[in-house]
Amino acid sequence: MKAPRFAYEKPQSLDAAIRLLADGGDGAKLIAGGQSLGPILNFRLAQPELLIDIRTLPELRTVRDEGDAVFLGAGTTHAAIEDGRVCDPTRGLLSAVARTIAYRAVRNRGTLGGSLAHADPAADWVNLMALLDAEIVARGPSGERRLHAAAFVRGPLTTDLAADEIITGVSVRKLSGRARWGQYKFNRKPGEFAEAIGGFVHDPELGMARALVGAIGDAPYVVADAMRLDEPAMHDAVSRAGFADGTYEHQIHFAALKRATAQARGA
């Protein structure tokens, strides 16, 4: 289980990284914390010709207040979010979710941007950012784009990102003091990938009521108007997410959604 041969570059600026990525074509791949890519390389499931290490780029480490949102640099580690070392605009939801990602040793190196770019359908940020209607900020040779997180993932390990674009960060709306949220991850063991993720966030001041059926093997399924989400509506959402009533998958996703909603509603 040793990685295949590849070349390695550690550019000193974001622009240099974008140039390397554009020049490298299909054979070039970005690496940040490497916590998703590392295992894939060791299994030889990815065989890049060139790895471009962007972990320490200062442009990806910035966190800034954007007024009604907070921009979290793509290089922010899960552990930094868990520890509250960066601002959490969701009043604790980001940090609570961060704590459940893999294990501490992985969270110390794994990054927000890396996890989103890898786009595992069961990954926490992929699902949570869709729930929060966050914007993913990407830069390429022709400039910067903002992508809706809910539409960012196209399918398993596939995103809307162009081959020469780099995620620079995520813009997450600030939830108000009246916001309520709930999140339930169903996995067999702490740290393992989710079999189901349910999410619910309601912020009357933002006029936001969204629900999530996540970890569905595909892009997350979001109910954008979830104000009156009762049990029949939850069943309906899970069915629309692709799991027919009566199946095991339907049952666990329904239970996860129900528990997330109950948590948000303080039940």
Binding site: F43, K189, P190, E192, F193
Partner: peptide, 14 residues
């Protein structure tokens, strides 16, 4: 099951 994420060994919480 080709990884320890699929072949689950009990951990300290199990």
């Amino acid at each position: 099951a080709s990884t320890l994420a699929d072949y689950m060994l009990p951990g300290a919480t199990e």
